[in-house]
């Protein structure tokens, strides 16, 4: 599922005062996903990522939980406009916060709505019998999925109502962890900073500390530009999010290609004027500035226009 898909809102549940959980289904089978994955939800041209809360092994639905921020934006729009039976346009799931399977122990730290990917990790850890413990910081009375977390984590849960309690729970957990533990944290910026500082102070290797920010993914659609095809003299616009290769193909310009991901080098074309922005993995370091060639499946333009030797 790489392009956008339309999913049906099968249920909406008020999880806490300001968090709603959405159950999204499809008539087609839903692709499994790695724990900690997110769905990119689009509404009126705005796209935001929401963590999926199940373990992802055999999903019957995609479940996300959305907190109303009160600042407008997509999350508030979802609260205001999405009803059961409605449709949502999504892409993904994408995985950017996966578990490390060979870890000896998994320490999960969640603050606030940051519980969503941690819930997914916790479910997977339980499914596969991985050793884990959870620190969950929340505002009293506003802890999303608390009952489920308690049920799954059992004695391996430390609850921290309030920032001070969370800081000391994190400090203690970080000090106590055995060699080979990996830590996964999701929450607001300040909490993530706290976690990474604590880990650094306790001598954790940075590769064992995984944090998930609440930020949009790097969709990297690139800026729009234009190309001039030398043989035909045609000028073609390349919109953001569309590859030059696709634009050429649509215009009937045959470009030999294979991988479409910038590794095989097959689609190389010559550039006569303008500067390409190389995004491939083919050009060696010494040629990263080359202006006479490019791989149009991924690369774009550093100038407003490129003239192509086609």
């Amino acid at each position: 599922m790489t392009g956008d898909d339309r999913l049906t809102v099968a249920a909406v549940e008020q999880t806490t005062v300001d968090v709603r959980s959405y159950v999204l289904t499809s008539h087609r089978p839903l692709r499994p996903y790695e724990p900690g994955s997110h769905l990119v939800v689009g509404l009126d041209g705005v796209r935001t990522c929401y963590s999926l809360t199940d373990d992802g092994t055999a999903p019957d639905a995609y479940r996300i939980s959305v907190r109303r921020t009160g600042r407008g934006g997509l999350s508030d729009a979802l609260h205001d406009t999405v009803r059961v039976g409605g449709q949502l346009s999504v892409s993904g799931p994408r995985s950017a916060f996966p578990p490390v399977p060979h870890a000896r122990h998994h320490l999960f730290v969640a603050a606030g709505i940051g519980i969503t990917p941690i819930l997914s990790h916790l479910g997977a850890a339980r499914r596969w019998g991985r050793s884990c413990s959870v620190v969950y910081g929340y505002r009293s009375g506003a802890a999303a999925h608390l009952e489920l977390v308690r049920r799954l984590a059992g004695a391996d849960l430390v609850e921290a109502p309030g920032r001070t309690a969370l800081a000391s729970a994190v400090a203690e957990a970080v000090e106590r962890q055995p060699v080979g533990t990996h830590l996964y944290a999701c929450g607001p910026r300040a909490v993530l900073d706290l976690v990474t500082d604590r880990c650094a102070a306790a001598g954790w290797p940075p590769e064992r500390v995984h944090v998930e920010h609440f930020t949009a993914p790097d969709l990297d659609a690139g800026a729009p530009f234009e190309v001039l095809v030398r043989s035909s003299g045609r000028r073609l616009p390349v919109p953001a999010g569309v590859s030059l290769l696709e634009v050429l193909e649509r215009d009937g310009v045959a470009v030999d290609h294979l991988c479409r991901t910038g590794v095989c080098g097959r689609c190389r074309i010559g550039v006569l004027a303008g500067t390409p922005e190389h995004r491939d993995l083919v050009l060696p370091a010494a040629l990263r500035d080359a202006a006479d060639r490019m791989y149009p499946c991924v690369s774009r333009a550093g100038t407003a226009e490129l003239e192509l030797d086609l």
Partner: peptide, 20 residues
């Protein structure tokens, strides 16, 4: 030739469900 490195980066960047 750098090919092994490039291949490995390609494999690591595959999307979930990709088949090559």
């Amino acid at each position: 030739s750098g090919m092994v490195d490039r291949t490995e980066r390609f494999l690591l960047s595959l999307d979930p469900g990709d088949v090559y």
